[in-house]
């Protein structure tokens, strides 16, 4: 049984995380913000409203904004890179971010759910029948059991099936995205056994009630 209270206290003691922002690709970088600036992450039900523009990057005469991935305060920027041609994945900005309820909940759920890990670095997909169900009704509509063929593992242009192994239950959380590479050992799904649903609901309620965010953190 996990100690939700202790975990919450631990997170309250250090409620920030540092988010490093890097260039998505090569190009000429132009910085838009200085340290100390307040920034906002994407908004909307589908995150359709982009976050604050941190910088722009130009290649092939195409200027592309780089948006803040999360709310927070700009801690530092690499001002020496302003107007320079940069390589892909070059870090240029750090944001100090106050953890949201959803992030705290996700972190605690990772300790409460049964996590089924990726056996190797690869791209993962649900098998077509499960994929249809997840798209139509959400992952919590899918019941899994030991030995059930659940994933397609795609790497080096080859695909092979992967069966789930672990306790029976519902898929409470999905940790991989379409066409994302998942590292070996990283969780693919979090499964909640049927008899644990009440416990998980309690975790959700506790976090909702006890985690306080500064105004506008959402």
């Amino acid at each position: 049984m996990i100690d939700v209270k202790a975990l919450l206290e631990e997170m309250k003691a250090s409620p920030y995380t540092m988010v490093e922002v890097a260039t998505p690709h090569t190009g000429v970088l132009s910085l838009s913000l200085a340290p100390g600036a307040q920034v906002r992450g994407p908004l909307g039900s589908w995150k359709e409203k982009k976050g604050t523009t941190l910088a722009t990057i130009e290649r092939e005469r195409n200027v592309k904004p780089i948006h803040a991935p999360t709310n927070g305060v700009v801690e530092s920027v690499a001002s020496d890179l302003d107007t320079a041609f940069v390589q892909a994945a070059t870090p240029f900005c750090t944001i100090r971010h106050y953890l949201t309820k959803a992030e705290v909940l996700a972190a605690i759920l990772k300790k409460a759910l049964f996590l089924f890990p990726a056996p190797e670095r690869a791209k993962y997909y649900f098998v077509p029948e499960v994929d249809k169900k997840v798209r139509a009704s959400g992952s919590r509509a899918v019941k899994v059991r030991d030995g059930m063929e659940l994933f397609i593992v795609s790497r080096m242009k080859r695909e092979s099936p992967l069966a789930y192994s672990g306790p029976a239950g519902i898929i409470y959380a999905v940790y991989f995205g379409l066409a994302d590479n998942v590292d070996a050992g990283d969780p693919l799904i979090g499964v909640c056994p049927a008899d644990q649903l009440a416990v998980i609901q309690d975790v959700v309620n506790r976090v909702q009630a006890e985690w306080e965010e500064p105004e506008g953190n959402g």
Binding site: P24, H25, T26, A88, A89, T90
Partner: peptide, 8 residues
């Protein structure tokens, strides 16, 4: 030069 993808 480091890039994000050989396919881009």
């Amino acid at each position: 030069v480091r890039i994000s993808s050989y396919r881009d």
